[in-house]
């Protein structure tokens, strides 16, 4: 196997769908603030995680448990429990970001394989070496601000595996450092596991279309028939300099399928599909399509057609290769 396909699962049924669609690995989290997709009704109880790992292993797939929010000072019990429950379930690795959680895992769960979450935003050989030397981290998920060439250079300078996002929602900010959601709602993906928590999101319709509000702030308005995006501030439309536009980023999804061969050449170990908040329909379609693409590249193809196949699943109806092909630096 040349490239490992790491796929999202927000529920046990999504985990089964991902495995049956060809995922090499599935990542998921517990139903609390210890993971960065802490949405109502989503995620796994400890018992569901045990059953999920059993199912995945029976089908030759791995389970990586995301415990990737930053622990609250003086209140680490939830993160400690998550680590213990991941080990008890037989998880193949845990995906961590917080120094205290990494330290606790390395000290009290030495048999757990540690992956560094994108939330840690480790993008230099020095930072990655620190996590590897100090806690024994074996894999680092690459921040989505690096080009393929930068990742190749990084891989040449480090001794751990790297994992890169290949499809799905795209954060324009450096992960783990973004506080936009906190300014509007008091909650963030970093501390509570939610960007634009749904209890603060409201949609309303009038003759001009649909308005999206976040805690009372209108952050976008879609005309009838216009493609919509997620209700996040980074993808909202605002007026500046007398002009209304997407100030930070257009609503658009990452699709780096055309770069799969380049990723392999750059020394990347695993490709990650974003979307633990998405349904089984998305998981099945995206995983099946990317598994075929990875297998085709493995068999010697140089390019694969993925964009057209998944066009109906992407945010804003648009796709980008993001920073992987950036030309502005």
């Amino acid at each position: 196997m040349s490239l490992e396909l790491v796929c999202p699962a927000g529920t046990p049924s999504a985990l089964r769908a991902a495995v049956e669609a060809g995922a090499h690995s599935v990542y998921c989290g517990f139903r609390d603030e210890t993971n960065a997709r802490n949405f109502p009704g989503l995620n796994f109880s400890p018992d569901e995680m045990i059953e999920g790992v059993r199912f995945a292993h029976a089908h030759g797939a791995k389970v990586l448990v995301a415990i990737n929010t930053f622990a609250k000072a003086g209140a680490m019990d939830a993160w400690k429990a998550a680590l213990a429950n991941a080990e008890k379930a037989g998880a193949d690795a845990v995906i961590l970001a917080d120094l205290a959680v990494l330290d606790h895992a390395a000290t009290h769960h030495p048999n757990l394989r540690l992956h560094l979450s994108v939330q840690a935003a480790a993008a230099t050989p020095e930072a990655i070496a620190f996590y590897a030397d100090t806690f024994g981290v074996k894999r680092v998920v690459m921040p989505r601000v690096l080009s393929v060439e930068e990742i190749a250079k990084l891989n040449a300078a480090i001794d751990v595996e790297t994992e890169a996002f290949v499809f799905g929602g795209l954060c324009p900010m450096t992960e783990g450092r973004c506080s936009l959601s906190s300014y509007a709602t008091g909650k963030s993906p970093n501390l509570t596991g939610v960007c634009s928590p749904p209890e603060h999101v409201a949609y309303s319709e009038d003759k001009n279309g649909t308005a999206t509000r976040l805690n009372g702030f209108t952050i976008d308005r879609f005309g009838a028939g216009e493609q919509a995006g997620y209700p996040t501030l980074c993808k909202g439309r605002f007026m500046a300099g007398g002009k209304t536009s997407y100030l930070f980023e257009d609503p658009v999804s990452l699709n780096a399928a055309s770069l799969i061969a380049a990723f392999a050449k750059a020394g990347i170990t695993a490709l990650k599909i974003e979307g633990r908040q998405r349904g089984k329909g998305y998981v099945t379609e995206v995983v099946r399509t990317f598994r075929a693409a990875v297998d085709a590249i493995d068999a010697g193809s140089t390019e694969v057609e993925v964009g057209r196949l998944l066009a109906g699943l992407v945010e804003g109806g648009r796709q980008t290769s993001g920073a992987y092909k950036k030309a502005w630096r």
Partner: peptide
Amino acid sequence: GTLDGDAMFFNRAIS
């Protein structure tokens, strides 16, 4: 589960 809720929202198939 045949259709993805987010995709239907992006495509304005649901309000």
